[in-house]
Nucleic acid binder design. Structure first.
Length: 291
DNA sequence: GGTAGACCTGGACGC
DNA sequence: GCGTCCAGGTCTACC
């Protein structure tokens, strides 16, 4: 079946998909040949379905590989809305960027939205898997997590949904370390899964939370394995842009842009975007880098 | 509050 | 083929 959803303009499915590396992480699948984004998703009823995303003039069309009950369809529409940020409003950001040549194209290109997973649990776990490793390592870790613990797609059991907190909570940290190669992150992931599965941590409540950004950041920093960089990255995913996610890549970009390639630290990266106030993280994200 | 060292993996490099 | 070094953020202990 096919779902058609409209987005607040300007909207570009291409820009959302290519906003960062998430399409390369299972259970997303970026089909380079067809230029199509796919994802395996587990619904609340326990059914596992495949989604294919295609652009439409009003927003996005989602092809689902099987008919859905009305409740399943409503659930899926809400998930797609969240993943693509269909209702997000960047008009204030665009207004603030018109005087900055390096951001002047942001509105015309419909930049600002960041591809999200369907749950914050998945995005926190993926973000932890990006820290202190190479991108190739992140891809391997997430691929192994999905392959070993995700529920299979009936039409193609080689493809699986992202594992639920309950499933990962039932796996001991030693197995995560040995089989998923999570290394020292294994107890962090296991602890996070247990906290979410037991209900002691309601991660999903942070989506749309009315907490101030510093309070939200403190909630994220309280998660083992989430430090300054990871918290700032997750805040961007949550639609809060007060902090720049400073990692080695950000330092490299800022070094080339403003310091003739000389090594810079967190202080210089933050200083580069200090003037953007509540839009710091988005200005960094959308900057038209020289390199 | 700031800092040093440990954590873990995989890739690059030298032998 | 083997050993060593290094990069990548976060945590913990210590000052």
């Amino acid at each position: 079946m096919r779902l058609e959803l409209s987005a607040r303009p300007p909207f570009s499915l291409h820009q959302v998909i290519h906003s960062h590396g998430w399409p390369q992480l299972a259970p997303f699948l970026w089909d380079r040949a067809s230029g199509e984004l796919r994802r395996v998703e587990r619904l609340a009823t326990g059914r596992v379905v495949e989604l294919r995303f295609d652009p439409t003039p009003e927003g996005v069309a989602v092809e689902v590989d099987t008919p859905l009950a009305p409740a399943e369809q409503a659930e899926l529409e809400a998930k797609v809305d969240w993943m693509l940020g269909l209702g997000q409003d960047f008009s204030a950001f665009y207004a603030a960027t018109r005087h900055e040549p390096k951001l002047a194209q942001a509105e015309a290109l419909a930049r600002g939205r960041v591809l999200r997973s369907s749950t914050l649990f998945e995005d926190v776990l993926k973000t932890i898997a990006t820290t202190n490793t190479t991108w190739g390592g992140t891809i391997r870790m997430i691929d192994a997590l999905v392959r070993l613990y995700g529920e299979p797609l009936p039409a193609d059991p080689t493809r699986r949904a992202f594992p639920t907190p309950e499933r990962l909570a039932a796996v001991d940290a030693d197995s995560l370390r040995a089989e998923v190669k999570l290394g020292y992150r294994a107890p962090y992931v296991q602890g996070l899964a247990q906290a979410v599965a037991s209900g002691s941590l309601d991660l999903e409540a942070l989506r749309g939370s009315e907490l101030s950004t510093p309070e939200l950041r403190q909630r994220l920093l309280a998660i083992k394995g989430v430090g300054g960089y990871a918290a700032a990255h997750l805040l961007v995913i949550l639609g809060r842009y007060d902090y720049v996610p400073v990692d080695s890549w950000a330092r490299s970009l800022v070094a080339k842009e403003w310091h003739d390639g000389r090594r810079v630290g967190e202080t210089e990266v933050n200083a580069a975007f200090e003037g953007w106030g509540e839009w710091r993280g988005l200005a960094y994200w959308c900057w038209d880098w020289a390199d």
